[in-house]
Design a protein around this nucleic acid. Sequence first.
RNA 1: GCCAGCGUAGCUCAGCGGUAGAGCAGCGGUUUCGUAAACCGCGGGUCGGGGGUUCGAUUCCCUUCGCUGGCUCCA
Length: 578
Amino acid sequence: MSDQELKLETMRHSASHVMAEAVVSLFPGARLGIGPATSEGFYYDFDLPHPLTSEDLPAVEAEMKRIVAADLPFVREEVDRAQARRLFEAQPYKLELIDDLSDESLSIYRQGSLIDLCRGPHLDSTGQIGAFKLLNIAGAYWRGDERRPMLQRIYGTAFATQAELDDYVKKLAEIEARDHRKLARQLDLISFHEEAGAGLAYWHPRGGLMRVLIEDYWRRQHYEGGYDIIFTPHIGRAHLWETSGHLNFYKDGMYSPMDIDGQDYYIKPMNCPFHIMIYKTRLRSYRDLPLRWAELGTVYRYERSGTLHGLLRVRGFTQDDAHIFCTPEQIEEEILRVLDFSLNMLRGFGFDDYKVELSVRDPQKPEKYAGSDAMWGQAESSLVKALTARNLAYQRQEGEAVFYGPKIDIKIMDALGRPWQCSTIQFDFNIPERFDLTYIGEDGRQQRPYMVHRALLGSLERFFGVLVEHYAGAFPVWLSPVQVVIIPISDRHLDYARQVEAELRSDGLRVQVDARPERMNLKIREAQLQKVPYMLVIGDKEVTASQVSVRLRSGEDLGKQSIAEFGAAVRAAIAARK
RNA sequence: GCCAGCGUAGCUCAGCGGUAGAGCAGCGGUUUCGUAAACCGCGGGUCGGGGGUUCGAUUCCCUUCGCUGGCUCCA
């Protein structure tokens, strides 16, 4: 952490203490949870007799301003456990924290009327807190545990200067303006329906067209990348899910079974067991491997109602799934290949900035994991080698691997610098074992293949939501549902407009003529709001010159061009995936 | 699932005990117009669903569904 970051974090942490003092003075009897700084600001958790609403925030903020203006010093003291227990005797959550700390001497901070158990550091005094603002309130379980009491959390943020705070507030407004839930409605892409069920997305014609474009690109890339594309059913017998283990370790994510001829069938939450079925249709030789099988597989998972969020968290979604079956000797090359393939795919959609995480097992608890030490060792080293070979910075996360294998997660960074988890490349040491997958090796004996599970876009729904937010709805030309809107100034320009339309259509462009008896200004405005990349204004001058006037959605006026010239420019932009 | 808030016309929102309103959109006209909203008129809502309190509920209470912000979890 840089000095500057530490300073900011310290200030935010101090601000959270000031907020605690303000809340305690406004709501006597408040019990304090914890109040740390976060990457964006700070929060404090309270157990209050009174349920907080956003209407309480101005009063808290005003009280905080008073405390800041009073410039109260933050005073650090060291106390022993007994003293600490006495000081916080009315604060059960603090007592629990004290009991969990092993140190004999504990630090406390005082400022004004507040005493808090806290490691620090803090500012010298409340007056050093810069510009701050309370943002929202939310429920939060004590220590993140849903079996513990639900506390009330107030989120806020603070910056050294008012200008920085203003920028941050502006950024929040920008995030809101890009919200895919709002844009998906405005651009007529996607809807959800209360009467039809929560967390289930409906793709409208324009959204559907974009999805087709995404899928077509995806399929082409996969065939070029050495994958085969398969299709599997949506439901499978209980027996399958018992074998795969899903009925043991993933039951909470699965929907109740349906009865078909006296047998339980489950709708699939994952595609892997189905791909396995295909693998097992014949004896596989080492000569057949690697097999790379991809599927746009639609799965359904139970997600708790409170976690649903537009397209980013739904109950039914299509994964761009694939399973790679290979020999241990092939694994390094396969990992490198899938890593390159992923990054290339993401770049195709305009994502050039990534955050990579390598999740490995907890070395202390080898018994928690499926697969042998040797397999984990080889898997991990092949992942590391691939990352190193491509010079990718990554964060190693000890103990974050799933029980069945280590993995690489790639988070794409959007235009606002927010990370989104989409791609994941996971080893699976569990399923091949459970389904007794084999191939005949060079030695003529049965061997166990390695299996790698990977999704690049993650789910089409989430990826689409991320695309909307990344581009704020102004998609690259190749993805824009309507690429060109032709705007005749008056009815007498319609014939020529139709001619331009036909010509551009024959070039494969998605073109529409706005033939309504409306004014040009209105048509421009609406095309602009629909984020159409090109607007062609056609009046007397254009008809006479056999040209078109090109306006971009940026507002830029490119002036007059010939139809051929314009068509070529658009085709070039499409080819460059701009 | 849990805590808090919110569900009023297609959208954005006002009204909050006496039976519903605006702007935009839609529809019908008039206007044929040079780079982000022409003008006039009309229709449109069992005020999310169910139950209760009340002479009377969009307004108060309960319940249910959905949404929002979080917690938890993940593609």
